[in-house]
Simulated scan of single mutants.
Amino acid sequence: MSKQPPIVIAESVYDAIANLIDERAEDAITQALSAELDRARIVTDKRLPADAVTIGSQVSFTVAATGKTFTYVLRLPRQISDPSVDLSVLSPVGSALIGLRQGQQIDWTIGAGKRTSITVTQVDAPIAA
């Protein structure tokens, strides 16, 4: 695996995701998400850069394996109201996106051991659930 890019997460989001992981049975996604939390730089909510992907961010990203670009709002599972626009932080791609900044790329497992690169192309301010 190549070196992963630095990530930044707001304290409140870190706490919400850590609690979510604690409440769930351990699986590949919770393990990967936990590893992301462990390596993240944690900042106060006010100091989170505007271009950092956080819960509620509308994020556009390109998946190298398909060459397709997608746009979703990253959400906690309980916040998802429309799967056509909302992406769970507990999904393979959602767990890869948290904490990335616009322009960053990450190599990630997206299912059944399949790896790809995901590049964040745009991040818009958080949208309330």
Rank of each mutant, 00 (worst) to 15 (best):
residue 127 I to V: 15
residue 81 S to W: 05
residue 105 Q to V: 14
residue 13 V to W: 00
residue 108 W to H: 14
residue 123 V to F: 00
residue 11 E to I: 13
residue 16 A to S: 14
residue 52 A to C: 01
residue 22 D to A: 15
residue 38 D to K: 14
residue 29 I to E: 08
residue 43 V to S: 02
residue 41 R to D: 07
residue 72 Y to S: 04
residue 80 I to V: 14
residue 113 G to Q: 02
residue 8 V to A: 04
residue 10 A to M: 09
residue 123 V to C: 01
residue 101 R to I: 00
residue 63 V to G: 03
residue 35 A to K: 13
residue 121 T to P: 04
residue 101 R to L: 07
residue 2 S to R: 13
residue 119 T to F: 11
residue 4 Q to T: 11
residue 72 Y to K: 12
residue 97 L to G: 01
residue 17 I to Y: 11
residue 96 A to P: 08
residue 95 S to P: 05
residue 41 R to A: 12
residue 7 I to H: 01
residue 122 Q to R: 15
residue 83 P to S: 04
residue 30 T to V: 02
residue 16 A to H: 04
residue 87 L to M: 15
residue 96 A to Q: 00
residue 16 A to D: 13
residue 11 E to Y: 09
residue 27 D to W: 01
residue 38 D to M: 12
residue 31 Q to L: 12
residue 49 P to W: 00
residue 16 A to W: 04
residue 122 Q to W: 02
residue 80 I to R: 07
residue 32 A to H: 12
residue 118 I to E: 01
residue 123 V to P: 00
residue 42 I to M: 05
residue 120 V to T: 04
residue 11 E to K: 15
residue 41 R to K: 13
residue 24 R to M: 14
residue 117 S to C: 09
residue 51 D to W: 02
residue 90 L to R: 02
residue 115 R to W: 12
residue 113 G to H: 12
residue 5 P to N: 11
residue 88 S to W: 00
residue 70 F to P: 03
residue 120 V to L: 11
residue 88 S to P: 02
residue 125 A to F: 06
residue 80 I to N: 04
residue 24 R to V: 06
residue 6 P to L: 08
residue 70 F to Y: 14
residue 124 D to I: 05
residue 47 R to H: 13
residue 33 L to C: 02
residue 54 T to L: 05
residue 47 R to A: 15
residue 59 V to F: 04
residue 74 L to N: 01
residue 74 L to H: 03
residue 119 T to G: 03
residue 38 D to N: 12
residue 126 P to E: 01
residue 67 G to Q: 07
residue 118 I to D: 03
residue 14 Y to F: 15
residue 35 A to M: 06
residue 29 I to D: 05
residue 88 S to Q: 07
residue 125 A to C: 05
residue 65 A to E: 12
residue 110 I to S: 08
residue 1 M to A: 13
residue 20 L to K: 11
residue 78 R to A: 14
residue 91 S to E: 10
residue 11 E to W: 05
residue 112 A to I: 08
residue 17 I to R: 04
residue 24 R to K: 15
residue 34 S to W: 06
residue 25 A to F: 07
residue 111 G to H: 12
residue 31 Q to D: 04
residue 84 S to A: 13
residue 1 M to W: 08
residue 31 Q to K: 14
residue 79 Q to K: 09
residue 111 G to S: 11
residue 122 Q to L: 13
residue 36 E to M: 09
residue 38 D to Y: 06
